[in-house]
Structures are given as structure tokens and as C-alpha cells.
């Protein structure tokens, strides 16, 4: 069931452990109907072409500056996103999702019509705490400017039948970030099994 506006406001007034946190909320109008608008933050990770080799998700032990660069773009300034370019951004807002809710990130169609895809990993787990990393990609043929502070996506909240375990204790890798975070795929436990299978192959 989608959580409505009144319920969202009520949850933002609960005791700290159970509170829905979305801060800074620059305008009350960010909460409308059954969703909360989130804004583009000021920090980005730009992906670069590496001279040393591909990203290996099993190891990811290359120095990160080989293939990424962190930049800060203040509100009022702008950044260009070229066709087929991938940039990691972050929500301006810091969130805490209560353990009995999960959220979906949905890009605003107004940006989508310019070719901008806002998030590919759309589910935010129950108990998650931190700003959300946004995978921003320009699928159009024309460069697009990104303006920090603009509303780029919506969060839609759904209730769970029973509260989930807190996100970190259920294996969550991204806890408490305030800026964009690069992939931590190498921390997946599946890699041990895949390595073992690779060793046992004749």
C-alpha cells in the first residue's frame, strides 16, 4: 500500500528511531499526494576513461582516481552531462527510511523527456539511512545541464507486512553516506562462491 501525505507527515514527527527523516526539506510542497520530491545535491562522481584497464567488479582494487573524479557544483551553478555520459550524483536530502517502509525512486518525467535517466537502482531498503546516490545518464543526443537544487526524482513509500531488520544488519553496504558513493559490488558475498566455482572447474 502506498503511504499518503498525512501519514508521511505523521511519521516525520515520531521518536527518532521510528522517524521518517527527509532533511533539508526546503519547501512543504516537496511532499504532495503520496510522494516526496528529492533534489539534486552538490557532489558528483564523474567517470573517466581509464588507461590502466577495465573495472573488475570482483576485485575493484584499482586506485579509484584511475577512473573517477569527484567534483562539487554549488547551488546556482550548473554542470554539463554529455550524451551517453554516466555521472553519479546524490540527493540533497539525507534520509532515514523507517523499518516498516520501503521506498521507490522514480525519475521525474520532465527530465526524462530531455533524455535524463535519474536512477537505475530504484528501491531504497527499509531502515536505510543516508543520502541517496543517483545514477544520472543522458540517453539523448544533446548535452543537458544539471542544476543542483532542482527536483529530479520522487520517493514513493510502501508499507511492509512486518518490520524488516535494520539495513546494516541485513547486509546493506551503503550506510550513512552524505555524498555519492561508488559501487561496492566487490563486497557482495556471492563472489566467494563464484571464485570457488572457478577454482573447481576442470
Amino acid at each position: 500500500m502506498v503511504i499518503g501525505e498525512d501519514s508521511l507527515w505523521q511519521r516525520m514527527a515520531l521518536p527518532l528511531e521510528d522517524r521518517l527523516i527527509v532533511t533539508p526539506l526546503l519547501s512543504r510542497q516537496q511532499i504532495r499526494g503520496g510522494s516526496i520530491d528529492v533534489r539534486l545535491g552538490t557532489e558528483f562522481i564523474l567517470m573517466k576513461r581509464s588507461a590502466r584497464g577495465p573495472i573488475d567488479p570482483m576485485a575493484m582494487d584499482q586506485p579509484f582516481h584511475d577512473y573517477q573524479e569527484r567534483v562539487r557544483v554549488e547551488v546556482g551553478d550548473k554542470m554539463i552531462l554529455h550524451p551517453n555520459q554516466l555521472v553519479l550524483g546524490v540527493t540533497l536530502e539525507f534520509l532515514q527510511i523507517p523499518r516498516d517502509l520501503l521506498a521507490y525512486v522514480i525519475g521525474r518525467s520532465s527530465w526524462g523527456r530531455l533524455g535524463l535517466i535519474v536512477a537505475t537502482a530504484v528501491m531504497v531498503s527499509p531502515g536505510y539511512r543516508g543520502s541517496l546516490t543517483l545514477e544520472l545518464a543522458n540517453l539523448g543526443d544533446t548535452p543537458v545541464y544539471l542544476y543542483p537544487g532542482t527536483r529530479v526524482a520522487q520517493l514513493v513509500f510502501h508499507g511492509l507486512d512486518e518490520p524488516a531488520a535494520a539495513y546494516p544488519s541485513s547486509g546493506g553496504k551503503y550506510t550513512g553516506p552524505i555524498g555519492p558513493e561508488f559501487s561496492k559490488l566487490a563486497l557482495d558475498q556471492d563472489w566467494d562462491a563464484i571464485r570457488l566455482m572457478a577454482e573447481r572447474q576442470p
Binding site: V22, P24, E93, Q96
Partner: peptide
């Protein structure tokens, strides 16, 4: 202080800074 100790960005009611 309580909010920082708990691990969230300090905020006032309703998510205001």
C-alpha cells in the same frame, strides 16, 4: 547531540534544517 549520536543529520520537526 542526540541526533548526531544516533547517526543522522541534525534537523527540526518536519525535516527542517
Amino acid at each position: 547531540v542526540a541526533q548526531l549520536a544516533y547517526g543522522v543529520v541534525p534537523h527540526d520537526p518536519g525535516g527542517r534544517s
